[in-house]
Amino acid sequence: MTVKSPPEKPVRPPILEKLPNYGIQSDECPRRAKTQLDFIMLAVEALDLNASQLMLAAIRDLGLQNILKSRVHLWRLRSTNPLRKFNQRQPLTLEESKALVLVVCYLCRKLTVLIRQLFLGYQQLQDQQLSLDHHFRLAKYLKRFRSHFRARMNPKRAMVLTYSTDEKLDELALSLLTQLLLCTGTRGEERLWTSLFDGEVS
């Protein structure tokens, strides 16, 4: 077999160009970014039980298979979160985190309607001074998030310990829901990506 063309270079997905590097020197994501990305994905999973399948589909749709190669690879990248029980002591490269940001925002847009409904319900509950249990869908989200969080995070970590009560976890879940809402926006990817490096650049 004769080869007439030079070997194909792995093509860098052009979609990554949307996210600038902000002059970050190292190729590794800061600790807080790893945690935040994993938490956001946890919230997405709490919103939609089928989220892991959706994520794999999103990777295909966005053409990011070169970076996020498989389900296991995705899981290993999420496990770089230092608060996880089975923490992988691996770096999370900028490229990988960019891909994760894109995937998350892609999923968030698909879930826009649900997220807005939840906020509407939240607003009503707050206006009527009712507890969060009174909105069925919101309560389900919070409950699922709590169980996901407790199942996967290392309870010996000091930061995880601060979320030991249901109220604290609900607070975290709602703040993550706000972040998901912001991710649905036109500049969602850029905003999320930028926020990962807040306080990390000089």
């Binding site: 902000y22 930028t194 926020s195 807040d198 306080g199 650049v201 000089s202």
Partner: peptide
């Protein structure tokens, strides 16, 4: 403009 928050503001 969107840019990460510089360290000195944290």
């Amino acid at each position: 403009k969107l840019a990460p928050l510089p360290r000195r503001y944290v």
